[in-house]
Design a protein around this nucleic acid. Sequence first.
DNA 1: TCTGGGGTCCTAGGACCC
DNA 2: TCTGGGGTCCTAGGACCC
Length: 398
Amino acid sequence: MERKILHVDVNNAFLSWTAIDLMNKGFNIDIRNIPAVIGGDEERRSGIVLAKSMIAKACGIVTGEPLYQARLKCNNLQVFKPNHRYYHECSDKLYNLLLEYTDHIERFSVDECFLDMTNFLMDRKIEDIAKEINYRVKTELGFTVNIGIAENKLLAKMASDFTKPDKIHTLYKNEIYSKMWPLPVEELFMLGRRTAPKLYNMGIKTIGELAKTDEKILIRKFGKQGKMMWEYANGIDKSEVVYIQEKPKGIGNSVTLPKDLGTLTELEEIVLLLTEKVAYRLRAENMIANTVDVQLRTNNFENTSHQGKLEYATANTKIIYEKAKELLNEMYKKGTKIRLVGVRVDGLLNKEEKQISLFETERNEKQQKLDETLDMIKNKYGYDKISSATRIKKDWKI
DNA sequence: TCTGGGGTCCTAGGACCC
DNA sequence: TCTGGGGTCCTAGGACCC
């Protein structure tokens, strides 16, 4: 049976939401109408463009580029800080509005949802429902969305990306030829900046040319990815709208350091702070982890990572830290300048799935009690209020 | 004052086993 | 005594998404 899928995408999410946030706080300009960007903190070396207004875009500013470079393109550019807490509030408001139409909603990111309307049309036309959602979001929530209508997620997502802002587009099977095939290959979902040049070298420039390429050739050259790009180019996507919240498969935390670090002792302190946060989030999910992964980035942007299995799955800060420290020590080359440090845990299981282990000792149980007590205090007074000595001593924003 | 942070999935190669 | 082939598990690195 043919499905009815909507993809709802907030236009310039971070910038629109910040515009509303600022106006709520008495700011008298709508930053959507001036050359403006949302950007990171340059003093902390995270100064990149996260979102841009239409005017900033017209200056040639692109997402992800350094702020200093963006300023060169537009000399009266205004830069605003992101407010992630507020973004999540806006995201929740949008989700709650969409819930009035169906509960088959996949929250694909903070500003994107897929809706499976197949069994929720109530004798209405899908186009009319899309129009109503578009109008209600604009009038009730104060920001605009693009909506893509199609018979699968891939086509709905491609459709919502056509012309912006505040637009509704369809991309039905019989429209693929006229609406999607003329587009350059890099506009196909999951086809990024590494793969596009390889296709260009093969003489494949448009999605249509990709669709007409022999699937076997693509599989031989790109493996599974080749199969997927051929199917996507032909509008084939059988994946379901995942409306039941899935548990995370990994949890990570990383920081770009305000200054490069060159000693193990300093790096160990950072790894401890990151581990505390990761383990805290892991426990908040009621999960335990099997592997630990430490990531380093040097001052010349070389990335390395080492991972290791724990003897048994745990959410215990101390045990995870000991493994992370071990990994850091085996991978860090003396004298290297480190720009970024990351810690993540993988192979997550629900706490209840824990195997009874011979390695469990009283000492670990004590540590577990300590973790639980600290978590309670953090939950009550805020994560940053209770801090390790190193956090107080130094001004790391972890 | 050059280049974020949080994810998921895939691949290639090595170790190890039969 | 010169090199098999299938399988699994593990790790490092990379591609891609928002």
